[in-house]
């Protein structure tokens, strides 16, 4: 996983609540078996008309936000399906952090495993950043070590993230590797499971 320590980039405002994973990456792009190549399909039905022509009014198509790497959005970002294609599409499009008042649980887990940082700020702070980003693109710095979001003009807000996720992101750790270090604990647990629990070995 790509580590995340500190990132400075242009913020783009997407002022909608409950942005679901069907919008982030529509279903027709989930048939691929690769882990990459989703960035061009991000927010597809919002970015393009049915012929594939970019819709100029959609914020990500506006030239001043093209280079944006921090997305500012409304509450409950990433609700809906468990598709990890959603954070893949965001990250592969170039986003490193999403700032919103709240995130859906599964999306948040998936994002953290892909070096994409979900930053939950108070509704008022998100609102302020949204208004400023709408006026003109500006740069924000998201600092995972300091747990802060800041701008050159003095704006600063602190955020919280669980300590283990922070540790893994800062160091780009592979959590499967960490769990495999506990192989003995898993084996001990398995030895005590009741024999009647369902198993697919016997064909029935």
């Amino acid at each position: 996983m790509q580590p995340f320590r500190k990132h400075t980039g242009v913020a783009v405002p997407l002022d909608r609540a409950n942005i679901d994973t069907d919008q982030i990456i529509p279903k027709q792009f989930l048939k691929r078996i690769e882990r990459t190549g989703y960035g061009e399909f991000l927010f597809y039905d919002w970015r393009f008309d049915s012929d594939g022509t970019p819709l100029p009014e959609f914020v990500l198509n506006q030239p001043q936000y093209r280079a944006a790497s921090i997305l500012i959005a409304g509450r409950n970002f990433g609700c809906g399906s468990s598709r990890e294609h959603a954070p893949w599409a965001l990250a592969q499009h170039g986003f490193r952090a999403i700032i919103a008042p709240t995130f859906a649980d599964i999306f948040s887990n998936n994002a953290l495993k892909n070096g994409l940082l979900p930053v939950a700020l108070a509704e008022s702070a998100v609102c302020e950043l949204m208004r400023r980003a709408e006026r003109a693109p500006f740069e924000l710095t998201v600092d995972l070590e300091a747990l802060s979001v800041s701008a050159a003009d003095g704006f600063e807000a602190k955020f919280h993230i669980n300590e283990f996720a922070r540790h893994c992101l800062l160091n780009g750790l592979d959590d499967i590797g960490l769990t495999l270090q506990r192989e003995a604990d898993i084996a001990r647990f398995e030895a005590a499971r009741p024999a009647w629990m369902p198993s697919l070995t016997a064909s029935r």
Partner: peptide
């Protein structure tokens, strides 16, 4: 790897959806 895994909770099982990285984690470590 499907959010509607919550369905199985009808039986008093703790059942939840996960992403593909977690699918890999469960395959490798149960």
């Amino acid at each position: 790897g499907d959010s509607h895994t919550s369905t199985h909770g009808a039986f008093g099982a703790l059942a939840f959806g996960i992403g593909t990285s977690e699918v890999e984690h469960v395959l490798a470590t149960q």
